[in-house]
Amino acid sequence: MIKHLLSAADLDAQHATLVLDTAAELANVSSREVKKLPTLRGRTVVNLFYEDSTRTRISFEAAAKRLSADVINFSAKGSSVSKGESLKDTALTLQAMGADAVVVRHPASGAPHRLASWVDGSVVNAGDGTHEHPTQALLDAYTMRSRLGRVAGLHVAIVGDVLHSRVARSNVLLLTTLGAKVTVIGPPTLIPVDVGPALSPDLRVSYDLDAVLPDVDVVMMLRVQRERMNDSFFPSTREYARRYGLDAARMRRLPEHAIVMHPGPMVRGMEITPEVADSARSTIVEQVANGVSVRMAVLYLLLGGK
């Protein structure tokens, strides 16, 4: 197994499948009365969060605790970091404490790469700037597999602010590795220049959501921040919702079996309407539950559990 999980591209198809298979086994633990395995007893996992993210932090914390690891939560606020400590000095501190794994969330793209060069333990990227969020992609793939039985051969549409989305980058990389067909959709202003050659030669790009919907198995909606309209990425939230939002009428264009995903947090009324978010096609709550299993699998495999 690899040492760090910094990018979804660190996983080849075999390793990615191993993570998903392991997650499926570990999911059984979560349904037991005693939700704990002794696997990582005596190992230390540090959650190093430079951004508020209750959802992801709790998910990693639950995953580590279910494997009996000691968990240290290190949040940037109210810590030495807010007093101006550098990432490197923080890394050396964690190193001195004997962290076996550091789970890092950071507003700067590439911060986990830097961290990995300064600590001996494993580094797990829990979201870095506008770069990647590989465990989100793994839990999304896991969710697709549990709902639709496979990932290979699926057509997945990723819709919205691809330019600023770490979820989109990781998903494109992982899903194409696993043999899915991926189309990114959004206004041209929110699709990165050269995104195709950058992420995957097979990636498709479309600016027309309605044209693609009848052909997809999965539609993944990305969060779109209202503030983007102040930078002229699109004229107004109303126009954005009209052209790229998923509402009930659009949902009816999907094939019968297709599912609707969202990494959260959602902006209801912007990229997704409440009736879509709460529909039977929606996997949004499942994604959260699957997140714990997938993160257990990642920690288990990175830390060499047996």
């Binding site: 793209s109 590439g110 770069h131």
Partner: peptide, 9 residues
């Protein structure tokens, strides 16, 4: 370009 698209910078 291509690299900035991949690196999210």
């Amino acid at each position: 370009g291509e690299i900035s698209a991949r690196l999210g910078l």
